[in-house]
Amino acid sequence: MRRKNRLLVALGALALLLPAAAPANAVTSTPTPAPITEETKDQLGEYMDKYGVADSVQIQLWKKIEDGVLWDSFGGAEPVSSREIETDKSISTVSTFEDGSIRVAEVMTGTPGINARGITMCSTSSFPGGAQYNNCNATDGNGWATAGFTTTFIRSANYGKIVDVWAPTVQCMKPFSCSYAWHGIVRSTGTDAVPALAQMNYGLTWGGTVTNNVQLKISGASATIYNSVNN
């Protein structure tokens, strides 16, 4: 079995959170049982294999979805463990939940600026006391769904600022369907105590609807990529 996706990591430049202001992953009704195609199992299995999820656990997770039960990694549960993986190209944190499902945050480190699944294709321009990060993709996902937007932001010693957010995207795999709701800057300038905040809202529907918020928090001191269910 196979699969692809990722999610949590300390970066020291910006923060991507999943929920916060609104309920992070809120299920508004009960999903209905649904078969999973072999093609979907192969794609998700590649991701799970990459991060060491045993075949026996994957079989149990497929059964949960087929029985109409969401994985713990969709929200509402704390991870039972986490581990960091560092290579010459990336740093990632893998969070494992009680049912064996995972969420992963990954930051690529092989290029100047920030290049990651969570924050991708960034270029930086420095100024005394800080830097501006340009055209960074901020995304979140758990294998079944990935959502995010592109942003430009500033970090300095005393404040963080989100200059712009644009190009929201959301993609998901059957039996889920995705719907974009809203994105924008909630608070353009912030401090360490109250960071600058941008947010994207989207729905993940399968019988019932899972409401998700992707949040980007910027402060002067630091920033981290989270999955909301890890907070």
Rank of each mutant, 00 (worst) to 15 (best):
N134G: 08
T146K: 05
D164C: 10
Q171M: 05
P112C: 10
I114T: 07
T120D: 12
R187K: 15
S126G: 13
P168C: 08
T191A: 14
D164W: 02
V163P: 03
H183I: 14
D140N: 12
C178S: 15
C172L: 00
F176T: 01
A147K: 01
C136T: 09
V107I: 15
T109V: 15
G143D: 01
A105E: 09
S179T: 12
C172K: 02
I162M: 05
P168I: 08
V165Y: 01
G129E: 07
P112K: 07
A116T: 05
E106L: 11
A193H: 14
K174D: 13
N135Q: 12
S179R: 11
S177D: 13
F127W: 08
C136V: 05
G184C: 07
I162T: 02
T150Y: 00
C172F: 02
T111H: 11
T150M: 12
M121A: 12
Y133V: 08
K161W: 00
M173T: 13
P175R: 02
G118C: 11
I119E: 02
G190C: 08
V165M: 04
G110Y: 15
F153G: 01
I119C: 09
A167K: 10
W182D: 15
A116I: 01
V194L: 10
Y133N: 04
T189E: 15
S123T: 15
Y159K: 06
T151L: 06
T151Y: 03
A147M: 06
S123F: 15
Y133L: 07
V170R: 04
G110F: 15
Y159E: 12
A193K: 14
S123K: 09
V165T: 12
C178M: 07
W182N: 10
K174T: 14
H183F: 13
D140T: 06
V163A: 11
V163T: 13
I114P: 04
V107R: 00
D192S: 15
N134I: 08
T152E: 06
W144G: 04
P128V: 10
K174C: 09
N135T: 07
V165H: 04
T124D: 08
D140S: 14
G130N: 08
T189K: 11
G160I: 08
N134W: 00
C172A: 10
I162K: 00
N158F: 12
G130V: 08
T146M: 10
R155V: 05
M108Q: 13
